[in-house]
């Protein structure tokens, strides 16, 4: 369950920026090849936000698809799993997208009253 440590990182990254102000929505980016399970992250989010300014916030997870470029033939293609192989047979493949793992933004809660 490294998702627990990762999700703790969400709270740290947000509170470092927004301090004790209550947060309504947290938008994270978890690429399909990042090795983090979104459902596990959702589960951990409730646990680690309890008693923090993120408590009760909605967690929005954007999941960018994997994309790669072949350095041998120049082809740009979808990468559904981390097996790095181009149709031309080359394994000299650069991953362009899908490994994202970060907090994009938050929406602050409306001040009460």
């Amino acid at each position: 369950m490294h998702e627990l440590a990762i999700t703790q990182g969400v709270v740290d990254a947000v509170t470092e920026r927004t301090g004790s102000a209550p947060v309504a929505v947290v938008r994270v980016r978890v690429g399909r090849l990042a090795g983090v399970v979104p459902d596990a992250m959702r589960f951990c989010f409730e646990l680690v936000t309890a008693g923090t300014p993120l408590e009760g916030a909605e967690l929005e997870i954007e999941q960018p698809e994997g994309r790669a470029r072949c350095r041998s033939c120049g082809r740009n293609f979808a990468l559904p799993d981390p097996v790095l192989l181009c149709r031309c047979g080359s394994a000299d493949v650069e991953v362009l997208a899908g490994r994202e793992l970060g907090v994009a933004s938050v929406v602050m809660a409306e001040p009460a009253g």
């Binding site: 301090g19 102000a21 994009a104 938050v106 602050m108």
Partner: peptide
């Protein structure tokens, strides 16, 4: 000593931080 900021923040606030940044 996490840097807690105190100016009022409203609406959407960009964070753009890698989740493993601290590690």
């Amino acid at each position: 000593g996490h840097g807690h900021r105190h100016e009022p923040l409203t609406g959407v606030v960009d964070i753009e931080t890698a989740l493993l940044a601290k590690n």
